[in-house]
Design a protein around this nucleic acid. Structure first.
Lengths: 149, 149
DNA sequence: TTTTATGCAAACATTTTGCAGTCAC
DNA sequence: GTGACTGCAAAATGTTTGCATAAAA
């Protein structure tokens, strides 16, 4: 199976589960389902979408509460990252994706990932200038994609 | 009275009201209250906070619905900008503030504004590279402020 | 006098929580 | 067996909408 991370899913899952149990938490079939969905999806999924995909792929309704709770759990363990494109809905992606920022099309909603080393460096300088101890950042550029122009 | 825009509030209000009526909309005392609160506040206020400030300063309860509707109205006229720091609550600020990005302290919530020409230029290049017609962007750097380190 | 704005409450969408039962370790 | 997890429904949060009334132009 193809995936954008260029690593084997089984290796990934094994490692992921080990991290969970190492920290004293318990694994479950629901967590596995969610991980598999996140791993093989390119897009940044909402809780509702994750729930629907799990239902579709595995014929199980794990419930939206479980999705939210699991995502919050993964987030706290830094295994998943939250993406907020400003439409009031949370989207999630695996942290194994290298850091990147987002271009969002304001017409069709398409999301393109990018990184820019210059900007990254400059952000460090900005934080330093204001005596902030930088932890993270989000940068989202809004515009019209090629198709929507 | 001091304010960060270095312009006179009465001039600002007069101009603001003119823009509203020029576009065929009606002015109101509620809009004036909200504008005065926004003008003299440094912070980026939520709808709830704006409502509370109006109640406190003018002893009038204009209602949360009015605040939301007015902010959406101002936003559509590009008189106000929406700031989303990713906590699921909308914050607003006047557009007369020059464009800037934000540093947010993850401990105390302090927000510091900044601009960086280098980053701005680089964003234009990034958009161009991906064939996006750039409209806007948000960039928020998260970290610990001096006091919280 | 006509159109837009207000204010209340009710509706809405998304996310969180309480709790009893279940499962992983 | 114990602590963590699940699943349902109910609650909470933030925001929007319907509608009758009021106010601005």
């Amino acid at each position: 199976m193809e995936n954008k991370y260029e690593i084997d899913f089984d290796d990934f899952l094994k490692n992921f589960k080990k991290q969970i149990s190492n920290k004293g938490y318990k694994n479950s079939i629901q967590k596995d389902y969610i991980l598999k969905i996140l791993f093989f999806m390119d897009e940044h999924l909402t809780a509702e979408q994750i729930n629907a995909k799990v239902k579709m792929e595995y014929n199980v309704d794990i419930g939206i509460a479980t999705v939210y709770r699991t995502m919050k759990f993964f987030e706290e363990l830094n295994l998943v990252e939250l993406l907020d494109i400003g439409d009031g809905v949370k989207r999630y992606e695996l942290s194994i994706a290298l850091h990147h920022d987002h271009l969002v099309c304001t017409s069709c909603g398409k999301i393109v990932e990018f990184t820019d080393d210059f900007i990254e460096e400059q952000q460090i300088k900005v934080a330093k200038k204001h005596n902030f101890n930088l932890k993270d950042h989000i940068m989202t550029i809004y515009g019209l994609c090629e198709d929507c122009q």
